[in-house]
Design a protein around this nucleic acid. Structure first.
Lengths: 345, 345
DNA sequence: CTGAAAGCGCTTACAG
DNA sequence: CTGAAAGCGCTTACAG
């Protein structure tokens, strides 16, 4: 493996000059640059990243923290994020760390900072409350994608998210407009009922939905009509069963993520109900799987591509020029499926 | 951030001795070890991994290469793999690189070797043919999980896999034993028809299935009854439509991965068929989603946990003691669903 | 068993 | 514009 020393030797310049070329510094003669670049190409030279990181006490990589490995939505967000990072010509090997739904992503990020010292951090999915409590010690440019960090006010943390409140309302409207009056909501944290975690995405979806229900004259009782649960198909399955047992005359449900909805579909079916004839269902996220379920699931499709693009672009921009953090809402789209019908009369 | 120098200073020993303690060398007095360990703990000292990697020209991490980010099966394999690595007390931040189905994982691994210099490599899913051609330059201990590398004969590449041939036969038997005689197969590479990629997992599944069909007296014509396609629900959807159009009297199909099967279910449904009344279907992998489809999908469940455990244990073992590569078949399980019935007469 | 010292491959003031 | 040199935080022969 060629080192900077070899390149210096072969090109006839010093290692200092070679280093300047590698780092695109301006103070190098055209002649030297040309010559050295030629040698670098010819030797297939790649600077040793450990040496660089050691010297600069900062890696040249961006690191990604993903909340939950089984979450299809975040996974496709990850895919788009990696692609976008690659399009910027950044080291394709951007590190990825998966954390559990219950884990503290900021604590994990702290460990990463120490080990890897990335020049930027991308959080995919996240609990705003955790950030509030522990992010203040961080100084690296960071971006939170798919949750809103505006109210946190950290000047190194941007955020790009679907307008969860608005979109939650949209989901509820799809049900109310068909004439449903007994509607349940599945998913989120128990605390959501009391509005404790107000900055959090899931909570906002629920809040938006409930507001819309009330606007439509549909009463909603958190104790009776709300069933919190984690984000997995199995959790959705169990929660749907509990909800339906409690409300036998339920005619529709809003699951705040598609994986929950997929579990709920199966639960309703196992309880002898046909979707959408006996019960209507709407999900959230717009993951690919919703296009293949039987029936196809109506859902709120988040714009994964745009979320990733805007997030990565902003992060890289701030790494280079350190501007202020920005907070942006990305448009969503209601996708009609085959899972909503008018209630039976 | 404390460095080894600080620890030396505080403990009253030299940095050389501190280094020996960090690296668990035997030639340190009990007294020195105790004292230094206490200081390390008290200071929360973590060795700088860049410096270590630079010095040893080898990182202390294991790196994971995953073929395909949308592949639920490999994702759950990844999850288990990371958990197992963590259980060994290895750096939890084991790097992960996702590559596309068509990409050359060994080329990617070469780049990783240069950048990261991991002490071990885990390949999750893989094309045996690619390995054949390009893996020979590698010297790091490596393991391929979910494909068989035995025939390749690399002494630093172990492999742990389901017996795909046998399991493919099992899937076919589930169909034949119900009386099906017009059976199609979905998925894999076009070359599979000619048996070109014989060492490859998917091919073996197909080969095993075809052998079983013939054993059951069911004729199988690769040109007519086989529909190759990539591993995605959409690909399965399209392939199923093509297959059914070509064989109107098809009564059953074997999809060599669950995601294909999920796409195929939707395709059959869109073509007006009811599963399993009009057509039976069996998948492969045993991903979680198969428990929630309507109907539930019959499938071959690979033992993800055991695959990960055996693979990681073997790799770590060989990193420490450099034994020979091993190749092991991990048991699978047929999971009956609601997607298989007798053909209509 | 322990310490002093060389060196891994880079970057970056500093001097010219 | 260029080079010589210090130093990032470690590991590891080497000497004692």
């Amino acid at each position: 493996m060629a080192t900077i020393h070899d390149i210096a030797q072969i090109s006839g310049y010093s290692i200092g000059t070679v280093s300047r070329v590698i780092n695109n510094r301006a103070d190098v003669s055209e002649k030297a640059r040309k010559k050295i670049e030629a040698v670098i190409r010819e030797q297939g030279f790649q600077p040793n990243s450990s040496a660089r990181t050691l010297r600069q006490s900062m890696s040249s990589e961006v690191y990604i923290v993903v909340r939950g490995i089984a979450n299809t939505f975040l996974l496709s967000l990850l895919e788009k994020t990696q692609i976008r990072i690659g399009e910027h010509g950044e080291s394709a090997g951007a590190g990825v760390q998966f954390i559990k739904e219950a884990e503290d992503e900021v604590a994990v990020a702290a460990k990463i900072m120490q080990d890897i010292k990335p020049k930027g951090l991308v959080f995919l999915g996240g609990n705003t409350n955790t950030f509030q409590q522990t992010f203040s010690g961080f100084t690296v440019p960071s971006v939170l994608i798919s949750a809103d960090a505006e109210s946190l006010g950290f000047d190194n943390l941007s955020s790009f998210t679907t307008d969860d409140r608005d979109a939650g309302g949209c989901a509820a409207r799809a049900l109310v407009s068909k004439g449903h009056r007994r509607i349940g909501i599945l998913g989120g944290y128990p605390g959501d009922a009391e509005g404790e975690r107000s900055g959090n995405g899931p909570s906002l979806r629920i809040r938006g939905a409930v507001e819309e229900l009330e606007r439509g004259g549909v009463s909603f009782d958190f104790v009776r009509d709300y069933e919190p649960c984690p984000f997995s198909a199995e959790a959705g399955y169990q929660a749907a069963k509990r909800l339906l047992s409690r409300i036998p005359d339920l005619t529709a449900a809003f699951a705040i993520s598609d994986s929950l909805a997929i579990g709920a579909m199966r639960a309703f079916r196992d309880m002898g109900l046909h979707i959408p004839r006996d019960i209507s269902l709407v999900g959230f996220d717009g993951v690919v799987a919703t296009r293949y379920t039987i029936p196809r699931l109506a859902t709120i499709e988040q714009d994964v591509e745009l979320l990733a693009r805007r997030g990565v672009d902003d992060l890289l921009m701030r790494i280079s020029y350190e501007g202020p953090a920005v907070h942006e809402k990305i448009p969503y789209r209601f996708v009609d499926g085959e899972s909503i019908a008018r209630p039976r009369t």
